[in-house]
Design a protein around this nucleic acid. Structure first.
Lengths: 90, 90
DNA sequence: TCACTAAGAAAGTCTTAGCGA
DNA sequence: TCGCTAAGACTTTCTTAGTGA
């Protein structure tokens, strides 16, 4: 996946991270367990330099407490609805 | 993204395609406009050999008439809810 | 025509080593 | 400490050419 191809992923990732008050490095460490890579990797994902593989996406979901679908929701209202759906279920 | 990494994308893609009664090649042609590549490419995506980039994902959304988030919905009930949400809005 | 596969070419992502605020 | 970047190493995806049902 190339730079800035229109994916909602970077935006949603940042949205979910800042909601929890985590730094890029903190998120990366909890997800990937490598403190040298963490900051760079997360930064690249949020800036749409590239997209992580699904294993990383899953790990992000777990830490950020959002469904995978949320990170790929293009429309804001749909993304909101996805969050509500998952919160009401838990 | 490697083979069988747990992404819901392959499953959802097949689900959305068969719902419309399209062949792998037909879907590929409408999305990518290359009849030689179409069949192979779609087949690889559905079998989770690999995942397409976001431009292709967007094109698939348009043809299949589903939101991007649907293709990345892990939970079946959430995926259903995403479909309903987008249908009620249109 | 359908779903599917191997393998080289092409394009992507990850890691290392840094930057300025 | 924070967000961020370049570039080579590494890994993935795409295209071509083909299979059997």
């Amino acid at each position: 996946m190339k730079v800035n191809d229109g994916s909602p992923f970077p935006k949603r990732l940042k949205q979910a991270r800042t909601r929890l008050g985590l730094s890029q490095q903190q998120l990366g460490i909890w997800v990937e367990m490598g403190s040298f890579v963490a900051s760079t990797s997360t930064n690249q994902h949020e800036r749409d330099v590239h997209t992580p593989d699904f294993k990383t996406v899953s790990a992000l979901n777990a830490v950020l407490n959002v469904p995978t679908a949320f990170l790929f929701g293009v429309e804001d209202d749909l993304a909101e609805a996805i969050l509500e759906f998952s919160e009401n279920r838990q």
